[in-house]
Simulated assay, not measured.
Amino acid sequence: MGDPEPERNISGGETGGGEEHAFDPGTAGTRAEAVVDALGGLYWQKSYGGRDGFECLVRTILSQNTSDKASQPAHDALVDRYGGGDLVAALAEADQQELAETISAAGLYNQKSERIIAIAEGVREEYGGETGFDTFVKDGEPSEVRDRLLAFNGVGPKTADCVLLFAGGRGGVFPVDTHVHRIARRMGLAPADADHEEVREHLEAAVPAEKCGFGHTAMIQFGREYCSARKPACLDDPDACPLADHCDQIGVYPASGEVVDPAEASD
Rank of each mutant, 00 (worst) to 15 (best):
I220D: 00
H216P: 09
M187G: 08
R182G: 04
H202Q: 10
P238R: 11
V252E: 02
K231P: 05
P232R: 02
I220G: 00
A205W: 06
K231F: 04
P242E: 13
A205C: 08
G223I: 02
G251L: 07
E225F: 01
G223L: 03
L203Y: 07
G223A: 05
T217L: 10
H202T: 04
A190Y: 09
A205I: 12
Q221M: 01
D239C: 05
L235A: 03
G188W: 03
M219E: 12
A240W: 12
E225R: 09
H179W: 04
F222N: 00
D195M: 05
P208S: 13
R224Y: 01
I183C: 07
P238L: 09
D248A: 14
Q249K: 05
M187I: 14
V199P: 06
L189G: 13
R224W: 02
A240S: 14
A209L: 11
A229M: 01
T178H: 03
D248Q: 13
M219H: 10
Q249N: 09
P232M: 05
H202S: 10
E201G: 02
M219Y: 11
D195G: 10
A192N: 10
G215D: 13
V180K: 05
E225Q: 07
D245M: 12
D236E: 13
A206G: 08
A205T: 10
G223M: 06
I250K: 00
A229R: 05
G215R: 00
M219Q: 13
A194I: 14
G223V: 03
P232D: 04
C212A: 15
K211I: 03
D245S: 15
I183T: 08
D195R: 06
E225C: 01
T178Q: 04
C212P: 15
P232C: 05
S228W: 02
E197G: 09
V180P: 03
V207I: 15
A190Q: 11
R200I: 12
G223P: 04
Y226L: 00
G188L: 08
L203R: 07
A190D: 12
F214S: 01
R186Q: 09
Q249V: 02
E204Q: 15
R185Y: 07
E201A: 14
C241Y: 06
E201L: 06
G251D: 07
L243T: 13
R185G: 05
C241W: 03
T217G: 01
T217I: 11
Q221P: 00
A205G: 08
A209D: 15
S228T: 15
C234I: 10
A194K: 14
H181Y: 02
D239R: 10
D177S: 01
D236M: 04
L235N: 03
D248R: 15
V207F: 12
D177Y: 01
E225S: 02
L203E: 08
K231E: 11
D239Q: 13
P232E: 07
Q221G: 00
H216W: 05
A194M: 14
D177W: 02
C234A: 06
I183A: 08
G213I: 00
V180H: 07
A229E: 02
R200E: 14
D195I: 04
E204F: 12
C247S: 07
D248M: 08
Q249C: 06
D193H: 11
